[in-house]
Amino acid sequence: MNVLRPRAEALGQSLPPLLAAAEQLAHTVMLGEHGRRRAGTGDEFWQYRAAGPGDGSRMIDWRRSARMDAHFVREREWQAAQSVTLWVDRGQSMAFSGAPDRAPKGDVAQLLALALAVLLLRGGERVGLSGTPPRPGRAQILRLAEAMAAEAAGEHASPDLALTPMHGRVVLISDFLGPMEGVEEAMARASARNARGVLLQILDPVEEAFPFDGRTVFESMTGATRFETLEAGALREAYLARLAERKARLAGLARASGWHHHTHHTGQPPQAALLWLYQAMERAA
């Protein structure tokens, strides 16, 4: 901790509120010390289940079975640490917010990623950010927060999954409104390493509803693209069709790779999205 203290102080005033918010959010969905309970090779007893085909005599709990007219297997909870790689889109498009009182997409993405990391690390998992190896321990939260605070990239960013461990898990959080080639290539690389994961799409309600009408100027977050129209309402149908097409492409890509896809809106409470992420990690294991 002595090594981390100067780094923590150097982060300034932006990270402590984010870390505190992530910790608080994680507490709202905490499912126990090791919430993702599944059968495995650990030492901690989980449950009894009826013996079935393939269960050898050594697996049967004869003392428990003697009290019933059936054979029971004593299952133990899986305790082998898993490696999880997080990628949070740092493109400028994530800085968009459709209302002054609504957090930008990037802030919501960072909050959810850090809160998920809190839950995973407390469960004994190893967690890393794209481009860095996963590590265990509470101190890793500070490293992740520091990495997320790095300067934003261009309009859109692409995930780097080159260091994804074999049989690891991956979480990609983005608006996924930019070119899809980088995402597809990264997922293919992860799948080649037998890694599975989730795609969490973060969108502002304005991007879902397209409530524009009349004269409107559309400008990208970097200012590189600008479009002015006198009849914005006439574009709504085509825009919504393109958005639905992008969502369908993401869902299809997830299905083909054995991944999971979900959309979260910045106007919604983050607890539901975090719970979905946490449970999706169990399904991706």
Score class of each variant (00 low, 15 high):
W62S: 11
A254C: 07
A241L: 13
Q24K: 12
H261Q: 04
R64M: 14
S174H: 04
G258M: 10
L19W: 07
D213T: 13
H167E: 13
E33F: 09
V127N: 02
R189S: 11
P104A: 15
T85R: 01
D69F: 06
R90P: 01
R255T: 12
W46Y: 06
M180P: 00
E219P: 00
R90I: 11
P136E: 15
A145V: 05
E125C: 07
R49E: 10
S57F: 06
S220H: 06
S257Q: 14
E237K: 11
M221E: 15
E155V: 10
A157L: 02
S57T: 11
A190R: 00
M30N: 14
V118M: 05
G214N: 10
A256Q: 15
P270E: 13
E44M: 13
F218G: 01
L121C: 08
G214D: 12
S130C: 15
R169D: 04
R37S: 07
L240D: 05
P211E: 10
A273Y: 01
H34P: 01
F96A: 06
Q92L: 15
P100H: 05
Y239T: 08
L275S: 09
A20C: 10
R38G: 09
L275V: 04
W62V: 13
A256D: 12
V206R: 05
G214L: 13
I173W: 01
N2P: 00
G214S: 08
M180H: 04
A224T: 13
P133N: 06
H27S: 15
L275C: 05
R122D: 11
A21T: 07
R63W: 07
V171M: 08
I60K: 03
T229G: 03
A251K: 01
L240M: 05
L275H: 06
T216M: 11
R67P: 00
E228P: 00
P211S: 09
E33T: 14
V118W: 09
A147H: 07
A238K: 06
E155Q: 12
T266N: 04
E75I: 15
R7F: 15
V170P: 00
T229A: 05
I141R: 10
R64Q: 10
W87E: 00
A285C: 10
P6T: 05
R63Q: 13
S93I: 08
L163E: 03
D213H: 13
L119T: 04
A273S: 05
A248Y: 02
L86M: 08
D101E: 12
S83Y: 02
V84M: 03
A95T: 14
Q271P: 00
G123D: 08
S83N: 08
A39C: 05
L25P: 02
G178A: 15
R102H: 02
L114C: 07
L111E: 03
R102D: 05
Y48S: 04
L161Q: 02
G40N: 05
Q201N: 09
A186Y: 04
L199S: 01
D61R: 07
V217N: 05
T164C: 12
A109K: 02
A157R: 01
V3R: 05
A95L: 11
S65E: 04
A238R: 12
H34D: 12
R76T: 08
A244Y: 01
E245S: 13
L18D: 02
M1S: 07
R215K: 09
H265R: 14
